[in-house]
């Protein structure tokens, strides 16, 4: 705990992710949808931000743009000092592979690869040796209590197990930015909780995270909860003074 509390966003550390005046319009003319309307959001090292809002409020759009999987209509997306809206393809590809971990609701595991191979893949693409990548993958799976599934293929696992493998894949290696869209969707309450604890500990270790969720109980693990409505931030929670109490007493633990 004390480690986590000492990892609070420091103003001296630059944000890992900056979204500036972000807009996204889908379609045009009569079918035009303003999915995002001028979003500004900074996420600092060590910070987990939850994004909540009604269906269609733009949460997934925000996340896919933050991860460089979609492009904004206007505005800037800066990941670790690189503006990914203007970066060349090679830079973007490297950034996506090395710095950003994604967990999406449809797990996107590769059916022809085992759980361990799926998790090892991004590391191998980074140029890590196959053996080292496999070792890291197995460790990541064990961390999620999935070590026994390392050699199973996706269609030999339950939805919840596949989801946790996808999470292990998103977290393997040293990801500076972890983006998770409803990562607890297919999981029971207890398993969902363990996913959140894992996400939390990654952020405590210095990563920046964004979690999109409908579940207030999971959003409550975040340092900050941002409320979206109709593509705009309408409100956000800030950490309460309970923190100063907590950090003052963390030493007693």
């Amino acid at each position: 705990m004390s480690e986590r509390l000492s990892q609070q966003p420091q103003s001296s550390q630059p944000p890992v992710l900056q979204l500036q005046q972000l807009t996204r319009v889908h379609g045009s003319g009569a079918t035009e949808v303003h999915a995002l309307r001028g979003i500004n959001l900074d996420v600092f090292p060590g910070e987990l931000v939850a994004v909540m809002g009604p269906s269609g409020s733009g949460k997934s759009t925000l996340l896919t743009i933050a991860g460089g999987l979609d492009v904004p209509t206007s505005g800037r997306v800066i990941v670790e000092n690189t503006d990914i809206t203007t970066a060349d393809r090679k830079t973007l590809a490297a950034l996506r592979r090395r710095s950003i971990g994604y967990v999406f609701q449809d797990y996107n595991l590769i059916p022809a690869l085992t759980a361990a191979e799926n998790v090892a893949l991004p590391r191998e693409l980074d140029g890590v040796s196959a053996r080292k990548a496999r070792g890291e993958a197995v460790a990541a799976l064990q961390e999620m209590e999935l070590g026994h599934l390392a050699d199973r293929f996706p269609d030999e696992m339950s939805g919840g197990q596949q989801q946790r493998v996808a999470i292990a894949r998103a977290l393997v290696g040293d990801r500076r930015l972890v983006l998770a869209d409803e990562p607890t969707g297919a999981l029971d309450s207890e398993t969902g909780e363990s996913v959140l604890a894992l996400l939390r500990s990654r952020c405590d270790a210095g990563a920046a995270g964004i979690l999109v969720t409908h579940e207030p109980r999971f959003a409550a693990w975040a340092d900050r909860v941002v409320f979206l409505r109709d593509g705009a931030v309408v409100d956000q929670t800030v950490r309460s003074q309970a923190d100063s109490l907590l950090s003052g007493q963390a030493a007693e633990l």
Binding site: T23, V25, G38, V71, T73, G231, A232, D235
Partner: peptide, 15 residues
Amino acid sequence: VTQAPAAAAGPRRPR
């Protein structure tokens, strides 16, 4: 609850 920033409703800007 809060009005979206005026820019949001503005014309599409080329990327």
